[in-house]
């Protein structure tokens, strides 16, 4: 099994690359993929340790539906960057196909972190011929298949957005990835619980809005908040085939509430924030933190990657 990485402080990475296009962008999906590869190269050149990819199926904005070919592209385009999936929706996957994809990377898979989780969107389960209520059992069956077939290749990692994920990582003695929406206090509790029984890698994802002095202007933060507002109000059904968003209804009514809740769990990345978060996570034994921007509208871009790298480097 993968050994815990030893260092003075957690490694810093960025995510999530989802390759969708926004309502306010004229970019094509091909532009989005090209920009994503460039972001990965930039992250590596700035000394960041990892980038993370995100998957959803059948989404009108082009959200990436399959991560392994993208991981292969980034791994080939870089030399030492870790490429993580956050996450492959494992109950929706064909486990034999996924194993084959990991194997085909060969030595490139040494830099892969195959983060897996349950998935939740009903449309995705229907579209891929799976039953949502069976996802837990299917998840366990697929994990066991992956362990049998690829072992340590690709570093299978269990993602946790609830405590069930932590229990699953402990049960299978696999590395742990804690989702960015988990409150910081829970992160600490979960890591302590995991560390009591395992020395495998622990990665923590944190939502991150850059507003550090001199790094990103307040208007940039406002743009990103606007982008998130669009994201959470998106109609994620598969009933339309263009990039316009027909949803101006119920989701919008709850928007302020959702954003206010989310803000409470997100890292606003000033220098002081970074110092506190990294020190706090290192104290409980976290190996890696990736700062993620996961909403549409204003996707992760090179400016933000540079800001994260600069702020992290100064910590």
């Amino acid at each position: 099994m993968t050994a815990k990485v030893s260092r003075d402080r957690p490694n810093l990475g960025v995510g999530l690359l989802s390759f969708n296009t926004s309502l306010v962008s004229n970019h094509s999906w091909a532009d989005s993929y090209r920009a994503g590869i460039n972001i990965a190269r930039t992250a590596e050149s700035l000394g960041l340790e990892s980038v993370w990819l995100s998957e959803h199926h059948f989404v009108p904005d082009g959200y990436c539906p399959t991560l392994m070919p993208v991981a292969g592209s980034i791994l080939a385009a870089t030399e030492k960057l870790v490429v993580g999936t956050a996450v492959v929706l494992l109950p929706l996957a064909d486990p034999a196909r996924l194993c084959q994809q990991v194997r085909s990377l060969g030595s490139l898979a040494q830099r892969l972190r195959l983060g897996v989780a349950l998935g939740y969107r009903e449309e995705e389960f229907k579209g891929l011929g799976r039953v949502r209520r069976e996802r837990g059992r299917v998840m366990d069956r697929h994990i066991e298949h992956l362990i049998d077939e690829i072992g340590e290749l690709g570093t299978l990692t269990i993602a946790a957005a609830s405590h069930v994920g932590v229990s699953r990582a402990i049960k299978y003695d696999l590395p742990l990835l804690i989702d960015g929406a988990v409150p910081f206090s829970s992160v600490v509790d979960w890591v302590n619980e995991y560390r009591a029984v395992s020395d495998k890698e622990v990665t923590v994802s944190r939502e991150c809005w850059i507003n550090s002095e001199g790094v990103a202007a307040p208007h940039a933060v406002a743009d990103r908040e606007f982008g998130y507002a669009q994201y959470v109000s998106w109609d994620w059904s598969d009933t339309h085939d263009d990039q316009s968003n027909p949803n101006d209804g119920a989701a919008m009514d709850q928007l302020d509430e959702i954003i206010e809740w989310s803000r409470g769990h997100w890292l606003r990345a000033t220098q002081r924030d970074f110092d506190a978060v990294l020190a706090g996570l290192y104290a409980v034994g976290v190996d890696r933190v990736h700062c993620r921007l996961s909403w549409s509208g204003v996707p992760l871009d090179e400016e933000v990657v540079r800001a994260i790298a600069a702020t992290g480097a100064a910590s």
Partner: peptide, 13 residues
């Protein structure tokens, strides 16, 4: 499947 992955890898270089 291998060919699809290879095409992904090649796109990076």
């Amino acid at each position: 499947t291998d060919a699809l992955m290879a095409a992904g890898i090649m796109s990076g270089v």
